[in-house]
């Protein structure tokens, strides 16, 4: 069950089945949008070992880029999305390059401080971003003859982008590049000693992650018609990390599960009890104590028990054996 094609089939299944389980087209679209962003976060956290608290920056910049482009220019939709990816990627390269000068928790603190810097930039320059009110009135342009004005037609559009992004990230994760990132995550000192310029590879990982996250942010702004300040704040970075970790790090489909779980549960609970974050907090503590591999880890051990643990290391992905352990 570690073959990439199997995971892609699962992702396609999720995109296909969501409309049957979720009545709100907006919520269903949000699941896929955040799944893209969480997978981008996972590339850094699960594959490179970089816990970036700055993912909200790339997400928010994606939102603003798309909003500004659609409001102030006549660019068609697809080039706008590409533009959001470029902006996300370029900023990610700069922030990545600055942050990886420190390691471990210092790195985490730096990325969080950068997240605050960009939040206050967006808040302060409200002429451009709309500040607290967000950038409002973003038109949802169609693509050629395809109008995207109903929530389910937009869902279809996002689903296609989601699957393309997922496949691309899978390809990257299993490439020589992805394997090198994994090596850096497991043992950066050794990776450097066998000749890899570790910093350059970390920055490259940031570039990919920034592009993917920027794309997700753009799709989010297009979904709700505004680029809200909350797309770039501390809580966005935090939520993206939480989704990634809940789903299970080091596994791209885990991020899809994490995003779906987080959004559906928060949607359900917040309707019942406004203080549901208390439960989320408790869940995170339980996760750290008992479910360190996340939902995907739970599924894997569940399958392992059912199969009676017949599959040895040979059943694992080629080259990668053993499962994640903290």
């Amino acid at each position: 069950m570690d073959r990439p094609i199997f995971h892609f089939a699962l992702a396609a299944l999720v995109a296909l089945l969501l409309p049957f389980f979720i009545r709100s087209g907006t919520l269903a679209t949000e699941v896929l949008v955040f799944a893209i962003a969480a997978a981008g976060c996972n590339l850094l956290l699960g594959y490179t070992g970089l816990l970036s608290f700055g993912q909200g920056i790339f997400f928010g910049l994606g939102s603003y880029t798309l909003g500004l482009a659609l409001i102030h220019t006549t660019l068609p939709l697809l080039p706008t999305l590409v533009l959001a990816m470029i902006v996300g990627s370029v900023v990610a390269i700069v922030i990545g390059a600055l942050s990886i000068r420190r390691q471990g928790v210092y790195f985490v603190m730096l990325t969080l401080a950068f997240a605050q810097l960009f939040y206050f930039l967006a808040y302060t320059f409200s002429d451009i971003t709309g500040g607290d009110n967000g950038l409002i009135g973003i038109p949802r342009r169609g693509i050629g003859p395809l109008a995207l004005n109903s929530s389910w037609s937009y869902y279809g559009f996002v689903a296609v982008i989601f699957l393309i992004s997922f496949a691309a990230l899978q390809r990257i994760a299993t490439s020589t590049f992805g394997r090198t990132l994994l090596a850096i995550r497991y043992n950066g000192e050794r990776a450097q000693a066998i000749g890899f310029p570790v910093r350059a590879f970390k920055i490259a990982a940031f570039a990919v992650s920034g592009a993917v996250t920027g794309l997700a942010g753009a799709l989010h702004a297009l979904l709700i018609g505004i680029a809200p300040l909350s797309d770039i704040d501390y809580h966005m970075s935090e939520s993206l990390l939480v989704m990634t970790i809940i789903g299970g790090t080091g596994n791209l489909f885990g991020s899809v599960l994490g995003a779906a779980f987080y959004l559906i549960v928060s949607d359900t609970l917040s309707a019942i009890w406004p203080r549901w974050l208390l439960l989320l907090g408790a869940l995170l503590i339980v996760l750290a104590l008992f479910i360190q591999k996340g939902i995907w880890g739970l599924i894997e051990s569940g399958v392992g028990i059912v199969r009676g643990r017949r599959g040895g290391p040979d059943a694992m992905a080629p080259g990668v054996s053993g499962s994640e352990r903290p």
Partner: peptide, 28 residues
Amino acid sequence: KRIYRLDHMYHIVATIGLALMIQEIVII
């Protein structure tokens, strides 16, 4: 005390959880 030996990712997850709980209790 139970999570010191784990990777710092889990320190962060657990203390974010703790922070959320304290914040929500304050609001309640």
